[in-house]
Design a protein around this nucleic acid. Structure first.
Length: 485
RNA sequence: UCCCCGAUAGCUCAGCUGGUUAGAGCGACUGACUGUUAAUCAGUAGGUCCCUGGUUCGAGUCCAGGUCGGGGAGCCA
């Protein structure tokens, strides 16, 4: 678009290069306007950076009618000369010669006024919250993390696999699924028994949205060696927490010839890579989010305040090895812990085999080790059918990576590659074997040891940005009773 | 799904043991002033006190049910 006869330059570039005394065009949305007799200041943002461009207008140069209609939220194009700023606070500013007002924003109605808004309020305005500093920063960081994930795997020779979003198998066992159907919900076709006849449905059988791409990733890994998926994942659980979504994005690498230790090494290397990448490429946005978090912490009671700032927390993860312990060791630590002995835990650990609650995970990560912890070799009874069974007959080669505040950020395992052991586990868990025939054939033909894990992308985003609610790190969160926008 | 808390102006909130015209700050608007930085100062407008029912002479306030939101738990990533 050449509305002013000159190509538009993004604000990030205008501020970065700082080449003054040249004619440029900037486009964006008004954050604030300050008006006085001899000069008007318009603060413009176009999403390319946290920072705003200060547009300076001498009232007589621009039609009064236009100036009166510019308010917070309006969309404009400004042609002018980029000059050194005489004022403090910015190096350069744009002295306007011409302004095109694309769209007004009636200040009586526009919800985002130049003041602090609560995240809860902004969640209800998800269509406009991209225009706020906080959500703009989160959006930029989110993009950089998506890119870094692909770069990490690409540099290591992994292949990205698009696993299916609609699936005919409900054997993954990772949670409640969303049904996909074109049948009439009021009058579905029925069979002789009076049940819904899915042979009449689009796929000729019941289908759902995927809860995991892992099983398909395994198929690919058992030919391509190293693969990963990065796609949307759907869980129809009635989860109402700040850490769960009904629709989220998951990264699932799957590697042939990896054992559980290789798997852990990769998980740790990847998390550190992503943290470092964010510090190297999103520093301004992270500094802003750190400041935001700090201000928020000031309103908290002393004992609830976190001991580290956002940047320190990220650097801490980067500079320390994750603690690796077995489930058995974890249970020992917990059973001998003060809160357990004094019955301070809501769920007191009494014996080996108990499932760990988040209070226990939090104790290990935040109190005992004070750093990320990887727990391995869980009792087989509390883990999925596909996990590699240990020789002790009691445990499986699972690993969970636990992070402060968010808890489980990664769940993974070495996979059971021995056909008979896998079959036996499937039967014990009453999973219909025939629905997994294709999965089992990879163990029948050229099976090899392999491993993988799942990283919840929005959980990573929580950690990187320091945001407290998962609904604020994804543009349009889907959660129970919430599918607006 | 369970436990706890909340819903009052556009936003964030105050409103005592029920009492007559429901308040503040911010934002918006108007004016003054100013190379300003979420400017400053003065003024103006703005309310179905979430919904339904109940108790009462009288309900923003008390009770019951519901809806929505937040925190925690479970499920998990």
């Amino acid at each position: 678009m050449l509305d002013h006869g000159i190509k538009r330059t993004k604000i990030k570039e205008l501020l970065l290069t700082g080449e003054v005394d040249r004619e440029v065009v900037a486009k964006g949305w008004v954050r604030t306007k300050r008006e006085s007799k001899n000069v008007i200041f318009i603060t413009l943002n176009d999403g390319s950076t946290m920072h705003n461009l200060q547009v300076v207008v001498e009232p007589e140069t621009i039609a009064r009618d236009i100036l009166d209609r510019i308010h917070t939220g309006a969309g404009l194009s400004v042609r002018g000369i980029l000059i050194e700023s005489p004022g403090a606070g910015q190096r350069v500013e744009l002295k306007a010669n011409d302004i095109i007002l694309y769209g007004e924003a009636d200040p009586e109605e526009y919800p985002l006024q130049p003041k602090k808004h609560s995240l809860e309020f902004l969640r209800e305005k998800a269509h406009l919250r991209f225009r706020t500093n906080t959500f703009g920063a989160v959006t930029r960081v989110r993009h950089v993390m998506i890119f870094a994930i692909h770069k990490f795997f690409n540099d290591k020779g992994f292949y990205n696999i698009h696993s299916p979003i609609i699936t005919g198998s409900d054997a993954e066992g990772a949670g409640e699924m969303f049904r996909v159907t074109i049948l009439d919900p009021v009058k579905p076709p029925l069979n002789e028994k009076g049940e819904v006849d899915y042979s009449e449905d689009f796929f000729g059988k019941p289908t759902n949205l995927t809860v995991s791409g892992q099983l398909e990733a395994e198929l690919a890994a058992l030919a391509m060696s190293d693969v990963y998926t990065f796609g949307p994942t759907f869980r129809a659980e009635n989860s109402n927490t700040s850490r769960h979504l009904a629709e989220f994005w998951m990264i699932e690498p799957e590697m042939a010839f990896y054992d559980i230790h290789d798997d852990m090494d990769l998980a740790e290397e990847m998390l550190k890579y992503l943290v470092k990448y964010s510090l190297d490429h999103c520093r301004e946005d992270l500094d802003f989010l750190a400041k935001r978090l700090e201000d928020e912490e000031k309103n908290k009671k002393q004992e609830e305040r976190s001991s580290m700032g956002l940047i320190e927390k990220l650097e801490f993860v980067l500079n320390n090895d994750f603690e690796r312990i077995t489930y058995t060791q974890a249970i020992d630590i917990l059973m001998n812990s003060k809160p357990n002995k004094q019955k301070k835990f809501q769920f007191v650990i009494e014996k080996w085999g108990a499932d760990m609650q988040s209070e226990h995970e939090r104790y290990l990560v935040e109190k005992h080790f004070k750093k990320p912890v990887i727990i391995t070799d869980y009792p087989r009874e509390i883990k999925a059918f596909y996990m590699k069974q240990n020789a002790d007959g009691k445990t499986v080669r699972a690993m969970d990576v636990l992070f402060p505040q968010i808890g489980e950020i990664i769940g993974g395992s070495q996979r059971e590659e021995v056909l008979e052991k896998l079959r036996q586990r499937i039967r014990e868990m009453h999973i219909p074997e025939e629905t997994l025939w294709w999965y089992l054939e990879t163990r029948k033909f050229g099976t090899v040891p392999h491993a993988g894990f799942g990283l919840g992308f929005e959980r990573l985003m929580l950690f990187i940005t320091g945001m407290g609610n998962i609904r604020d790190v994804i543009p349009f969160p889907r959660a129970p009773l919430n599918a607006e926008f």
